[in-house]
Structure formats: structure tokens, C-alpha cells
Amino acid sequence: MNQKITPSTVLLLIIPPFLWAGNAVLGRIVSDLVPPVTLNFLRWAIAFVILLPLGHSVFRRGSGLWADRKRYAVLGLLGIGLYNTLQYMALHTSTPINVTLVGASMPVWMLVIGLLFFGSRISGHQLAGAALSMSGVLVVLSHGQWQQLLALRFVAGDVFMIVATIIWAFYSWLLMHAGNEAEIRRNWATLLLAQISFGAVWSGGLAVGEWALTDARIHWSWGLAAALLYFAIGPAIVAFRCWGAGVRRVGPTVAGFFSNLTPLFAALMSSAFLGETPHAYHAVAFFFIVGGIVLSSRSRAVS
């Protein structure tokens, strides 16, 4: 695999963290207006409608979608049905800064899952970089007080986000292992729509469960409608398109370190829109995370 990072690849991998940071901040803002699982379903249902005119050919008989339906069902479950649902659930009990900082453990899970399940080799620099990034996660989980780690004082949202991050790592690695999908890959819209089709079904089933088991309700407003459009177009369609293209160029391990930019963007947006000024321990966490990116970039694992 050619893992040379070009300016266009850097741009592809910077856009998703920026949009995902906005997703976390806006998700926190609307968390009292719509249940988290339902929010995820509405987001992807809208994305499906938007992409349908561009990628409807994926549903033709003989399309790679049907030959690889099991693969797309798994991709849809992991990347669309579970990851985003857990993230919105996390935002009900945690802040956007914390949620995105916990998500900065992504490089660790990319390395571990790549090694255990996909035969990827790990370099010393990547291990050291991942350790630094994980240290940043531990700083935010402990709120800068290390004794809290001994008491295992985790906010529920932080735990949800850790599970979501592991799921996203599996999703990213699976993107690298193509099936019989050459025709689908020729059009980015068909490739994404193939995943969303199954993902919307998974998230819809989860939403039905949410309404059956809880007192879920939606407080409709024009503001919520605008937020749903952003969720569908930005963090969903645009971010997934850029992330998929970036992962195929440099591999999940290298791409995973770019996800560490998300908490930086989230901190800036939270300060601007939510009045959540970052604390000193957030600055320490940023230091470790950026250090992990710099250190790991000195050597790239070969998948």
C-alpha cells in the first residue's frame, strides 16, 4: 500500500474531524429536543434521501451490493447504526470536549485491532505515539486528578464513547478489505449509499426499541430541522465520503491519528457556542495528543 501523505490526503482527513466536532457540539445543543437513538435514525434517513438520486444504481439487480450484502450489513451496523448512536447517547451525560477527547483513543484501537484481526504490523514510534494519545485521554477522564483513575470514576457518556471508538476502528479496517464491489467503488455516492441503506435499517430498528422502552418524544422546531440537515449533510455524507477516501489512501492506522484533531475543534466550538471554557487539564490533554500525532508520524505501519 502506498502511504505517502499528500496535501489532498491531509485535507481529506482534516475535514471529517472538523465536521465531527460540529456534530458533537450541535448534538449536545439538541440533546433535550430529540432522543439520541432517534436522532441517529433521522440523520441517516435524511442522508439516504439526499444520496438516492446520485447513487440509486446501487440497487440494480447484479449490483455489488447484493453480492456483498453481508459485508455492507456489517459496515452499516458498525459505522452508522452503533457508532453514531453511542456518540449521541454519550452527549447526554458528557460534554462535547470530553466526548471528543475520549474519542482521541482512536489510534490505540486502530493499532490493536489492526494487529489482532487484520495482520497489521506496528512500529515503535506508533506505539509511543499511541501511548501519548492515550495519556491525553486518561487526563480528561480523570479531570486532571490521577487518584480518580484508581476509583474508576467514569461518566456514563465516557464509557459509551470508548465503546463507540472501538467500533469505529473495526469499521475503518473493514473499509480496507474490499469485496466484489469494483462497480460500486467507481461512484462514491453508490459506495456510501450501500452502507447507509443497511445502516438506516439498523438505526431504525434501534429507534423503534427506544420508543417502545422509554418515554421518548421529539420537540420539533425550525432549529431542530436545520440541525438535522447539518447532521445528514456534514458529519454524515461529507465526512464519511472524505474519511473513506482518506483511509483507502493511507490506511486506518495513519488516518486514525488525524481523528485526534476532533477534540481541538470541539474545544474551540464549545467555547464559542456553549460557553464551556476548556480547563487546564484539557490543555495538558491536547499536549499529549498532539505529541502522539507528531511522534507517530515519524514512522508508518505497513498494513
Rank of each mutant, 00 (worst) to 15 (best):
T6Q: 10
T9K: 00
I14D: 10
I15F: 09
P16E: 02
P16T: 03
L19I: 08
V25M: 04
G27V: 05
I29R: 01
T38A: 12
T38V: 11
L39H: 04
F48L: 14
L52Q: 10
L52P: 05
G55W: 10
G55A: 12
D68N: 13
L75A: 04
G76K: 03
L77V: 02
G81F: 05
Y83L: 11
T93K: 02
P96E: 10
I97K: 00
A104V: 06
S105R: 00
L115F: 15
L115M: 13
G124M: 09
G124K: 12
S133L: 04
S135E: 08
V140G: 06
S142M: 08
S142F: 08
Q148G: 06
L150T: 12
M161F: 05
V163F: 13
L174G: 03
H177K: 13
N180C: 11
E181V: 10
W188P: 04
S203H: 11
G204H: 06
L213S: 15
D215C: 07
A216R: 05
S221W: 09
A227M: 11
L228C: 07
G244K: 00
R249D: 11
R249P: 02
G251E: 04
T253C: 07
F257V: 08
F258Y: 15
M269P: 02
S271E: 08
A272D: 04
F273I: 09
E276H: 09
T277P: 00
P278F: 12
F288Y: 06
V290R: 04
V290W: 05
I293Q: 08
S297P: 03
V302D: 10
